[in-house]
């Protein structure tokens, strides 16, 4: 279950718009080590369409993506590579 994934770092990008959603995610992910997990709270629509896809394009592993009760989403991503 997604709830059981333990994140090493957590960010909220619901106040940002494209492309800053992914920019902010990248900046935080850059600080992590390979294999560490980042939890991202993001809005539906464009962010939920683009951020997971961009993360995958850069080779990271999207572990789960779930919708929350308030309409936002929670994404868990594992950092791959340096």
């Amino acid at each position: 279950m997604a709830e059981e994934i333990k994140a090493d770092e957590k960010i909220d990008i619901t106040n940002l718009v494209c492309p800053n959603t992914f920019v902010k995610t990248k900046v935080v992910l850059d600080e992590l080590d390979e294999g560490q997990i980042l939890e991202v709270r993001l809005n539906g629509g464009e962010p939920v369409q683009n951020v997971p896809r961009s993360l995958k394009e850069e080779g990271h592993k999207v572990l789960s993506l779930n919708e929350n009760d308030d309409g936002t989403f929670t994404l868990f991503v594992e950092k791959v590579g340096d």
Partner: peptide, 8 residues
């Protein structure tokens, strides 16, 4: 930062 080759 968006560029994979550069980043933060």
């Amino acid at each position: 930062i968006l560029l994979k080759e550069i980043g933060a």
